[in-house]
């Protein structure tokens, strides 16, 4: 098994890397790029803690080969804040008490972010639906959904 070259843009930065084919995107991000915000909660694509955005779409980094991300734009939780300013979604999670132990948080944020990019005016049910691939053991989801909803409301006001 020899390394293959990989060109990838992570949080706006270009990387030219060589990776082994069996390296997952999660391993690349966490071990090689030291972006540890994405977490491994199950390694089997069920819990959602490792979710990142690939070209704007939430995907499971634990079930995505790094090489499959070649040529893609990846956004991780570390890339949400811009120049030190938190993304409104991050702020909403903080303000609404949507963060408890925090282990599922980055995955939740990334799915919510990807979802809102496509559905800026979604309702509660759609939000629950969009987050249904993420397991949270602390919050009962209530405040997470409220946090996402609050960002939706704001974008509607702007219109």
């Amino acid at each position: 098994m020899s390394k293959q070259s990989l060109e990838i843009i992570v949080n706006g930065e270009n990387y030219f890397l060589a990776v082994e084919p069996n390296c997952t995107l999660m391993e690349l991000l966490r071990d090689d790029l030291e972006l540890t915000g994405a977490k491994e909660g199950c390694g089997e694509g069920v819990c959602g803690s490792c979710t990142v955005l690939m070209d704007g779409k939430p995907i499971r980094s634990c079930l995505t080969l790094a090489l499959e991300a070649s040529g893609s734009h990846i956004t991780t939780v570390e890339g949400l804040a811009q120049h030190g300013d938190l993304d409104p979604l991050q702020q909403a999670f903080i303000d609404h008490g949507a963060v408890q132990c925090g282990f599922c948080t980055s995955g939740m944020l990334m799915s919510a972010k990807g979802f809102l990019l496509e559905n800026p005016h979604a309702g509660k049910k759609e939000i629950r639906n969009a987050l249904s691939g993420h397991i949270c053991r602390c919050t009962g989801y209530t405040k997470i959904v409220e946090a996402v909803e609050s960002v939706v409301d704001r974008s509607q006001e702007k219109r």
Partner: peptide
């Protein structure tokens, strides 16, 4: 008062370190 958790910012930005990290 409804005050945000003191570690919420670190957790929402991926800075908080767990044993995994």
């Amino acid at each position: 008062k409804r005050i945000s958790k003191v570690d919420a910012v670190d957790k929402a930005t991926g800075r908080a370190l767990y044993i995994q990290d």
